[in-house]
Write a protein that binds this DNA or RNA. Structure first.
Lengths: 153, 153
DNA sequence: AAATAAAGGTTGCATATGCAACTATGTTAA
DNA sequence: TTAACATAGTTGCATATGCAACCTTTATTT
């Protein structure tokens, strides 16, 4: 074990653990997609998931908030996904500043195709972790998210 | 609560929780740095932390592994940090392909200055979480990291 | 009603980062 | 010993993303 891993006050905090695990998980998921010839980034997949569960579509700006990215970044993500026929931009009648983003049939089918693959891959990664541990983990992360929401303007 | 947050099998997995919490935490830390006029990115800070704890310096490629990034990305990160006099590249005598990366006096001072600030900020974010919960969280994340190491080539 | 402010979305700019190709140096095998 | 292979680091290219400036539309103020 590398000296930097031990004996550090920081390693008793969430910061290094969260960041590193998250980064490793992202690379793993990307790898799963690549190996199965699925032309999706993790970010695109997150958007598909959200839109799949909200069939009325979501205002572009709300989608930015939900996915925790700024509107510029979302604009470009949607540009790519619209070009690939995964989602559509629909002008919002009640307020012409807004766009509604909806999943397309192709997007929905791709999501449903990737779903079991991804759930299965996540199962592998969560091997050896009990249901209770998962519940605990999620409840702690939820607490941290709440704290972060309070302390970010 | 947004419909996509509930009723999804995925939300019983680590993936969405880890990714989102980690992203929020990154933004929070960046914000702390900005508000305190500290000219550091979170990535630079991680490198400073590792080098601070290893006064002999670390081979550039090893640093890439430890920080979970590829060598191209690390090359550029070190370029920036060397330009800012936070670290130095020293040719490794025993193998002239290698560089040893060492923290400079300025880098070390900056790290020591940010340390209490960051520990304090993390304390705020971990408010309401007991020591035992922290231990559990870290041990679960360590398990997940081990699983990920096994399943990534 | 007109003027000002706010909100949603897009674009330019800067930076970060992964992959693949490349160079230089070391190691291994024939 | 030389040829083939492996390793460390850099660079070009592609993509992702944040910030700030900007345009258009809506809301608020006077």
């Amino acid at each position: 074990m590398h000296p930097s891993i031990i004996n550090s006050e920081f390693n008793k905090t969430i910061a290094p653990w969260l960041g590193k695990t998250s980064k490793m998980l992202n690379m793993y998921i990307l790898d799963v997609f690549n190996k199965n010839n699925i032309q999706l980034t993790k970010q695109q997949w997150v958007v598909l998931k959200i839109l799949h569960e909200d069939t009325n579509g979501i205002i572009q700006n709300d989608l930015a908030c939900i996915t925790e990215r700024n509107k510029a970044s979302l604009t470009r993500l949607i540009n790519v996904m619209e070009k690939n026929n995964l989602v559509t931009r629909i002008p919002f009648k009640a307020d012409s500043r807004k766009n509604v983003i909806q999943i397309t049939k192709k997007g929905d089918e791709l999501f449903l195709k990737t779903k079991p693959l991804l759930l299965n891959s996540l199962d592998i990664i969560q091997c050896g972790i009990t249901e209770n541990e998962m519940k605990d983990l999620i409840s702690i992360l939820a607490k941290i998210q709440n704290n972060l929401k309070k302390h970010t303007i």
